[in-house]
Design a protein around this nucleic acid. Structure first.
Lengths: 199, 199, 199, 199
DNA sequence: CATGAATGAGACTTCATTCAT
DNA sequence: CATGAATGAAGTCTCATTCAT
C-alpha cells in the first residue's frame, strides 16, 4: 500500500505498520519493541536494522502517518470559497478519522513522550496545521466571506471543532456519515447557534 | 491526629504540589518518584507514607486538581440564559487556565498511562463534563435560545472551542483577558462566522 | 509470667512476647518491626528503647525462649537410670512442645537468618544440647545400661527421634499424651524394632 | 530449539547450579539475584530469561535438587526385607549427603520463605516422604519382620534418625563411610540400645 | 520514656539495545 | 541481512532505623 513500487523498504513498512498498531493500542511507553517485532512477524533485532531506536521508530511512524493523513486531507481544490474549502476539509478529515481510528488515536492525542526533539517536532506540526487554517481564515475575511474578527480565535474554534468530533469518532466508535456531518459542522460554524430570524 | 485543625495534611499537599509540577513538566512516565520527592524537599520513602504507588499518587493529583478546577469553574449562577452561562463558564475556565498553566497541561492533555482503572476514570470524567454541557445545550434549545440542531454536535463544538483556546494559553503563554476573550468566544459560537446582514 | 517480681522489664517482656508470636508465625525475614510493635500494643520506636536492632530482638527472644524451654525440660532428677532420665526428658519435651506450639516452631526449626553471630550462637546451642545428651549416653554405656556402640550415633538417634516427633506435634497439631508417647519412644529406642523372641 | 540435543538448557543449568551454591550458603532472603548471576558468570537480566522471579528460581532449584536426590536414593531393589531396604536407603542417603553437602543444607533445612505455594509444596513433599516410609514400616510389621507397634512412631523415628545424622555430616563435615554408618544405624534401629543378653 | 513520621540504602525486576552466530 | 540470547542501567517500592516532639 505504502510501498513505492520497488521491493526496497518492504520490511521497513512492515515494521511501520506494526508500530502503528501497537503504539496506537498501548501508547508509547507501554509498547515493547519485542511486541512490535512479534506483530511484524520478525525478529527483535531486525527493527534496529531499519530504525536506530524506539524513539526514532516512533517518530518515523508519526511522520509517515501524518504524511498519509495530509495526503488524504489536502487533496482539495483551491478556487473555492472558504465555506466550500471547510466542507471539503472536514469531510476529508472525518473520512480519515473514521477509516483510521487506531492511527488517529496515537497521532492526534497520545504524545506523552517529552523527548525534546519530538516535542519540538510535534509542536511545529501543530503550528503548521494552525498556520494553514489561519491563512484560510484570513483570506476568508479579506474576501468578505466571513465577518471580521480575531482570525486567531476563529482559527482556534475551527481546529477545536475538528478535534472535538474526533473524540467520539475514534474513542466511542461513533458511526458517522462524513459528508452529512461535515455539512452540519460548517453550518454551525458559519451560522452560529443563535436562531436567525431572517431565515 | 496528624495535626491540629488547619494544617492537617500539610505534607500530603506538599507532595501533591510537587507532583503537579513534575508530572506536568515531564509527563507520567518520565517522572521519577525521586524527583517528586526532591521537589517536595522530602525523602523518597516519605511519598509512600501518603500514597501507595506512583499510579495512585498520579490519580490523587488528578482528582484533587480536577476538584480544584471544578470548584473554580462551577461557581456560576443558574438563572441565566445559555449565553450568559457560557460567558461565565468560559471566563472561569480561561481564568483558571491562565492562572494554573502547569496544572492544566497535565490534567487536560497528557494521559498516556493506560492503567485500566485510570483510563476508566479519565473516560468517565470526560463523559461527565460532556453531559453537563449537553444538558445546558438541550435546555437552550427548549427555551428557544438557540436554534434546533444536533445537540450532540453543538456540545462538541463548545467543548472543542474551550479546549482549543487552552492550547495557546498554556503552551504558548498567550496572555489573555479572560472576560474579553470569553465574550468573543460566546459571540463566535452564537453568531457564527457569516457576515450578518441583518445586524 | 516471666516477670521477675519487680515492675522493671514489664514492657521488655511485652515486646518479647509479641516477638515470639510474630516471628513464629511469619519467620524472621517476613516479620516487620511495625507488626511486633502493633501486637505489643506500643509504638514502633519503643522497641528500640529495649533492643538495639531487629536481629538483637530476635536473639533475645530465642535466648529467653530457650531458657524457658530448658527450665521446663531440665527439671528432672539425677539419680536415675538412663532409661528413666530419657523418659523424663521426653515427657518434659513433649509437654513443652504441646503447650508451646508456636514457640517451638520458630525456636527449633526456622532459622534462616545467617547472621554470622547468630549462626555461631545457634550452632553452639545445638552443640550444647548434643553434649548433654552425649554425656548421658556415655554414662549409660559405662553403667552397662545400654550396650556399647558409637555414643555419637546413639546420641544423634535420640536427638533425631525427639526432633522427629516435634514435627507432627507442632505442624500437624498431633494431639498427644506426653507420658504415654514418651514411654513408647523410650521403649522403641531401648528395644529396637526387631521382634524379641526372648521377651 | 535452544540447542541441538545434549547441550540443551546449558545456561539454565548453569543458573540452577549457581542458585544451589548461593541459596545454600546464604539462605533465600540473604541471597541477591545479582550474586547468583555473578556466580553463574552471567548478567543479572539473563536469569530472568529462564526464571520469572527469585521465588520461581528457588522453587525450580528445590524441585530439580529433590528430583536429583530421589533418583539417587530410590534406586534400590524391591524384593528385600525391611532391614535390607533400610540399609540401602540409609546408605544412599548418606552417600548423597556426603557428596552434596551444600545442596542438602538448603533442601532439607532452610525453608523460611513462607510463600504460600511453596509452603504447601514443601509440606506435601514431607508428607510424601513420610508416606513411603510408613508403607515400608507397615509391610515390615505384616511380614513379621518387626514387632507390632505404632507404625507412625516407628516411621518418625527412622526419619528422625536419618535427619539427625545429616546435621553433623553437612554442618560439621563429619567424614563418614556410608556403608558402615548405614549398617550401624540399621543395627541401632533394629536392636535398640538395651544390652541383649541372648547375643 | 514513648512515639511515629521521615528517611534512604538496597532489593527485585524490566526492557531497550547489542552482537555473536 | 536476520536473529534472539544476553546485558545492565534505571526504576519502583520496602522497611529497619532515627530523631524531633
Amino acid at each position: 500500500m505504502k510501498d513505492s513500487g520497488t521491493k526496497a523498504g518492504k520490511k521497513r513498512d512492515l515494521i511501520l505498520e506494526a508500530a502503528v498498531q501497537v503504539f496506537s493500542a498501548k501508547g508509547y511507553h507501554n509498547t515493547r519493541m519485542e511486541e512490535i517485532a512479534a506483530v511484524a512477524g520478525i525478529g527483535k533485532g531486525t527493527i534496529y536494522e531499519y530504525f536506530a531506536s524506539k524513539l526514532q521508530l516512533f517518530q518515523a511512524m508519526m511522520e509517515s502517518s501524518l504524511q498519509f493523513y495530509y495526503e488524504k486531507v489536502r487533496s482539495q481544490g483551491r478556487d473555492f470559497t472558504l465555506k466550500e474549502r471547510l466542507l471539503h476539509l472536514f469531510e476529508a478529515h472525518l473520512r480519515f478519522c473514521r477509516d483510521n481510528r487506531e492511527l488517529t488515536r496515537i497521532v492526534f492525542w497520545d504524545s506523552e513522550i517529552w523527548d525534546e526533539e519530538l516535542k519540538e517536532w510535534t509542536w511545529q506540526t501543530r503550528k503548521d496545521k494552525q498556520q494553514v487554517m489561519y491563512s484560510m481564515v484570513e483570506e476568508g475575511i479579506r474576501r468578505g466571506e466571513i465577518r471580521a474578527g480575531d482570525p486567531n480565535l476563529v482559527t482556534l474554534m475551527i481546529i477545536g471543532l475538528v478535534g472535538s468530533v474526533w473524540v467520539p469518532i475514534t474513542l466511542e466508535d461513533w458511526d458517522i456519515a462524513p459528508d452529512e456531518l461535515a455539512r452540519q459542522m460548517v453550518d454551525l460554524i458559519m451560522q452560529g447557534l443563535e436562531p436567525s430570524p431572517h431565515k
